[in-house]
């Protein structure tokens, strides 16, 4: 239990071990710890960022989907409008064609009627002339005359 030079020896040893620890033990260990802490922090931050990115991407997808839907709706509407326009046009054309055909048919009918009338008039004239010539050839036979007139009338 004497105090002796051991105290000096131990002081030197203590200084050496503290120096050694300061130089070669503490920095690499604490460096590794801090680096790991940083890695973990970075990893967490990256995960956060990825989450945010995912959210953004999903929002964008929804947006684009809505836009696409709207566009499709517009296209369909446009097509419908176009279809109904085409149908209207066709109807219009058909009606016009019908009217045109009707007018043409009427004109033809009228023409045929007037032609028939003219033919009839010519026939009536020739029959009247033939009847008159028959009346003149048979002459004065009352009964025969009236029979001729009846026959003529029947021929009309």
């Amino acid at each position: 239990m004497n105090i002796n030079a051991t105290i000096i020896g131990q002081t030197i040893a203590f200084a050496f071990f503290v120096w050694f620890c300061m130089k070669f033990v503490w920095p690499p260990l604490i460096g590794a710890l801090q680096e790991r802490q940083k890695k973990i922090a970075d990893g967490l931050a990256a995960a956060d960022r990825a989450d945010k990115d995912l959210e953004q991407a999903q929002a964008k997808i929804a947006e684009e989907l809505a836009a696409a839907k709207q566009q499709a709706q517009e296209i369909i509407e446009q097509a419908n409008r176009r279809a109904s326009a085409i149908v209207e046009e066709a109807k219009d054309d058909a009606r016009k064609e019908g009217e045109r055909l009707l007018v043409a048919a009427q004109a033809e009918i009228e023409q045929q009627v007037s032609q028939a009338r003219n033919e009839l008039r010519a026939q009536v004239a020739s029959i009247a002339v033939a009847g008159a010539s028959k009346v003149i050839s048979k002459n004065l036979d009352e009964a025969a005359n009236s029979a001729l007139v009846d026959q003529f009338v029947a021929e009309l």
């Binding site: 071990f17 033990v25 260990l29 460096g31 590794a32 790991r36």
Partner: peptide, 18 residues
């Protein structure tokens, strides 16, 4: 003391942040 610094330095040299 050498056991202490030896052990710690052994680990410190191989210390990985992984």
């Amino acid at each position: 003391g050498f056991v202490f610094v030896g052990l710690f330095q052994f680990v410190a040299k191989r210390a990985t942040s992984g």
